[in-house]
């Protein structure tokens, strides 16, 4: 069958562009390191706004998208006054009471909040696992409320990568097959899945663990497999829900470094959900959630007022 070889295919610009993206990492990573060493990364980046940084991202994403693609904005996720109300035993419970925020492409943001603050609900909405009760939520340029379950599944498949606290790897399944799982639902042929999964595992430094099963891997390695799985489908956003929650500090740091590196190298936006300030501080932007509202947002990239400073 055609397409089983990972050879360049004019109908599929992604592989080439991915390679183009990868050719940049050294400088990007260095840049971020330097910025962090300066200690003024967040401010600097926020000041620069859409200038140099965003231009680089735009260049990458332009190459990633088909020329005719409708999504040409710099915004990966755009929420406007989003609420989510659950009905529990006939009682309406408001988990989110009106949240507006934008996540730009290539951004690294942390959503912070105590348990019960609504951050999980927000993450489920951002990840298209759920639909808002009211408000407008656009993910990858598509309005979530207007999509069917099937379209939502396809949107998750193409746009979102998930990293979970408890890894959620399929037991008795090799690392490579776990990583290739999102590609199954994209209809990617098996041979190509294997090739791309191998590549993704190499990117997280697990080339020597391709055929290991989750039970044969350490916690840190399992989370790295999960990160490879989140990246393999070339999403716009990786949503990481307490990715270090089940790991010790050192391993957690390694996972964070990996996420930072991938954010820089691949230009993929990373949204981190955590209740640990240490972890959240590593992100360029912190979004504090309390009682279903955004309490504080350190950097609305697009400059639109998202409740900053309230």
């Amino acid at each position: 069958m055609a397409g089983t070889t990972p050879a360049p295919d004019p109908a599929r610009p992604e592989p080439q562009s991915r390679r183009a993206g990868q050719s940049e990492p050294p400088s990007g990573a260095r840049q971020i390191d330097r910025e962090r060493a300066d200690g003024g990364w967040t401010e600097e980046r926020a000041e620069r706004g859409t200038s140099e940084h965003a231009t680089r991202e735009a260049a990458i994403f332009e190459a990633r998208e088909p020329p005719s693609g409708a999504r040409q904005t710099n915004t990966a996720i755009d929420a406007e006054d989003v609420t989510r109300t659950y009905r529990m035993d006939g009682v309406a419970v408001s988990a989110l009471r009106g949240v507006s925020l934008r996540i730009g492409r290539g951004e690294f943001a942390a959503i912070l909040g105590p348990s019960g603050s609504g951050k999980s609900t927000l993450m489920h909405l951002l990840g298209c696992l759920d639909r808002p009760t009211t408000g407008v939520l656009r993910v990858g340029g598509r309005e979530v409320s207007k999509l069917s379950d099937t379209e939502l599944a396809e949107l998750r498949n193409n746009t979102i990568g998930f990293v979970f606290q408890s890894f959620h790897l399929l037991a008795r399944t090799s690392a490579r097959e776990n990583v290739g799982l999102p590609l199954v639902y994209q209809g990617v042929p098996r041979k190509e899945r294997r090739a791309r999964a191998t590549e993704a595992l190499a990117a997280v430094g697990l080339s020597h663990r391709l055929d290991h099963r989750p039970s044969q891997l350490s916690g840190g390695e399992q989370q790295r497999v999960a990160i490879a799985r989140a990246l393999v489908g070339e999403p716009q956003v990786v949503l990481a829900d307490e990715p270090t929650g089940n790991l010790d500090t050192r391993t957690g740091n390694e996972v964070m470094e990996l996420l930072e590196r991938l954010n820089a190298e691949h230009g993929v936006a990373v949204v981190l959900v955590t209740h640990e300030p240490d972890i959240a501080d590593r992100a360029a932007r912190q979004i504090h959630i309390r009682d279903g509202l955004i309490e504080r947002d350190t950097g609305a990239l697009t400059g639109r007022d998202t409740g900053e400073g309230t």
């Binding site: 990840g127 696992l129 998750r156 193409n158 799982l181 999102p182």
Partner: peptide, 16 residues
């Protein structure tokens, strides 16, 4: 159940 949830999160449609 968890496996099904995971598959759905990763893009499995209902019919998959």
């Amino acid at each position: 159940t968890r496996e099904i949830g995971l598959r759905k999160a990763l893009g499995a449609r209902q019919r998959d």
